[in-house]
Each structure stands twice: as structure tokens, then as C-alpha cells.
């Protein structure tokens, strides 16, 4: 079964669509403003990662044609989501433990209760957009974004859903910066993966794999899909010397968002008329994306 990327969304400072990922990062760009994208309603008391995730979800679902005029165009029980975020609620957790140490639980805000659960982005996304199918949150380190794609693909192939929204998002704040020891990309990307390649296909999903070492993963990707044009990889070591590589490191640490942002980069690449396979590498996980023309 060929699975297709049928919707895409990007929300990073200075990059609002897939093609922008292939351009140099604009220094000093404003942070993404979720309220400006989807309105203020329903964003109050949500943490930053959830707000960004909700904005990305709406854009990707709309792009895929399965969200229109405020409702889904297909049955909600056939729509699922996989969210990848490692750092999403770290600030809520750290602020809570700090407040308890300084005062007591009486000083906590009850509004933070849902945010203490690490699946808050996925569950809020489901509630807002009526996604009643599988609802999964991947917190698996640097491979998370590509892992999320793998699990979405698996559940589509076994028929648990017809469309899976895959979101990768991370927030920038004092806690996350200290955790990764550097700046964190404040945003991410989302895509819709669908069972049926339609005219909306923006890319086709090739193998998604994992091996013990990134060099082995890179080798396996080129073996399974030779002749690729582009590598999306923060690391240059596993990438063949002559190959074109885009690192996507300019926004800070993408962490759990990385793999999904890489897929969005591939979609941007194909949108420029390129047709060879694109390889994504995140840690020891890898994926191949094909241009949509192969569908016909």
C-alpha cells in the first residue's frame, strides 16, 4: 500500500511553508503567533507547544482537504493523530515542582492539571478537530519525528484509520533551553498521511527504518531507494560526500519536531519540481520520500 502525504504545514520563525525550509533562516524573525493563525478562542491556559500544535494541525488538515468550514469532511473515527514532542510539557512540570517546593500544592493552578500529562498536544488536537481514531504521543528523543511517521504508516496499513495527522512540535522556554543546552526551535511541522494517493499527493512515503548506527541507516536508505537528490540531515558524517545536504539546524534544536520538519522539507523540494528520492536522517532513524509523480 502506497501512502501519500496529502497535507503539509510549517510553523517556525520566518518559515510558514514547506519551501521556506529550503531557504536560509531569516535572522530576527518573529516567533510564531498561534492566535494570529487560528484565533484566540480555545488557546487560553494551553501551553505553548499545544497552541503551536493546534495551529499546525488546522493548517495541515485544511491543506489535505479533510477540514473545511470548521468541521472534518470525513468520519472522525477514521482520522487519527500521532504527535512527536520531547520537551512539550517540561516547563509545566518544572514550574509545578518549583511551586510545591516554595509553597505547597495550594499555590498550583488547577488549569495546569491537563498540561501535566505528556499527551496533552495530541488529546487537545483530537478534541478541537474531532479526530476519534488512534491518538498516539511519541517521546522518543531525536528519532521521534520519523518514528511518529513510522507508527502513523503502520496504523494506516493495518486499517486503523484512513488519514493520520502527524505533528512534530517543540516549545522554546527557559526549561527547554537548559535541557538541551542551547536554543530550541519554537514551532515545528505537521503533515497528513493518507491511505489513498489522490491528486492531492505532495509526496509518497518510502521506507522508514531504524538501525543501530546512523551510517548503517544511511546506507540502507540508499540501497532501498537509490539515486536520491537530497539528504535532510543535521549530521554530515553519514551522508555521501558528493550529495546535497540541508541540515535544518538554523532554528535551534528541533528535537521531536525534526523528522516531521524534514518531511516538510522534502515536500518543499518536490514542489520546486525535483523528482528524485529525498532521504531524511534523524539520529539512527531514516526515511525516504518520493516525488508525487510516481503515483501515476
Amino acid at each position: 500500500m502506497t501512502l501519500a502525504v496529502t497535507g503539509i504545514a510549517v510553523a517556525l520563525p520566518g518559515a510558514a511553508d514547506a519551501r521556506a525550509l529550503l531557504q536560509p533562516v531569516r535572522p530576527g524573525a518573529d516567533p510564531v503567533d498561534p492566535a494570529a493563525l487560528i484565533g484566540k478562542k480555545g488557546l487560553r491556559f494551553k501551553d505553548r507547544a499545544t497552541q503551536l500544535g493546534l495551529a499546525l494541525a488546522q493548517a495541515a488538515l485544511t491543506d489535505a482537504g479533510i477540514w473545511r468550514d470548521g468541521e472534518p469532511t470525513v468520519p472522525g473515527d477514521r482520522l487519527g493523530t500521532v504527535v512527536s514532542s520531547n520537551l512539550g510539557n517540561a516547563d509545566t512540570v518544572c514550574r509545578a515542582v518549583e511551586t510545591i517546593a516554595k509553597e505547597s500544592t495550594g499555590a498550583l493552578s488547577p488549569m495546569d492539571t491537563p498540561n501535566a500529562s505528556s499527551n496533552i498536544i495530541a488529546s487537545q488536537t483530537a478534541i478541537r478537530y474531532g479526530l476519534r481514531g488512534p491518538n498516539l504521543t511519541v517521546c522518543n528523543g531525536r528519532t521521534s519525528g520519523l518514528d511518529a511517521l513510522r507508527w502513523a504508516a503502520l496504523m494506516l496499513r493495518t486499517g486503523r484509520a484512513d488519514h493520520m495527522l502527524v505533528t512534530g512540535v517543540e516549545p522554546d522556554n527557559e526549561v527547554t533551553r537548559r535541557l538541551v543546552d542551547g536554543p530550541v526551535a519554537d514551532g515545528g511541522a505537521a503533515l497528513v498521511l493518507s491511505r489513498h494517493a489522490t491528486t492531492r499527493a505532495k509526496a509518497l512515503l518510502g521506507p522508514v527504518i531504524r538501525t543501530a548506527r546512523h551510517v548503517d541507516t544511511a546506507e540502507e536508505l540508499t540501497r532501498r531507494a537509490p539515486g536520491g537528490d537530497l539528504w535532510l540531515s543535521a549530521d554530515d558524517q553519514p551522508v555521501p560526500g558528493s550529495a546535497r545536504r540541508i541540515a535544518l539546524t538554523g532554528w535551534g534544536e528541533l528535537s521531536g519536531a525534526l523528522g516531521v520538519v524534514q518531511c516538510a522539507g522534502a515536500v518543499g523540494w518536490f514542489a520546486q519540481g525535483r523528482s528524485g528520492p529525498v532521504y531524511a536522517l534523524a539520529g539512527s532513524a531514516g526515511a525516504v520520500l518520493f516525488a508525487p509523480e510516481r503515483a501515476v
Binding site: V93, A96, I100, T105, L108, P110, D112, T113, A116
Partner: peptide, 11 residues
């Protein structure tokens, strides 16, 4: 976790 136990304790 203290945060989850604490949030439950709060309400």
C-alpha cells in the same frame, strides 16, 4: 511525579 500528584492534590 510531584507535579502530577500535586496537580491532583490541588483539586
Amino acid at each position: 511525579t510531584e507535579s502530577m500528584f500535586g496537580q491532583a492534590d490541588r483539586v
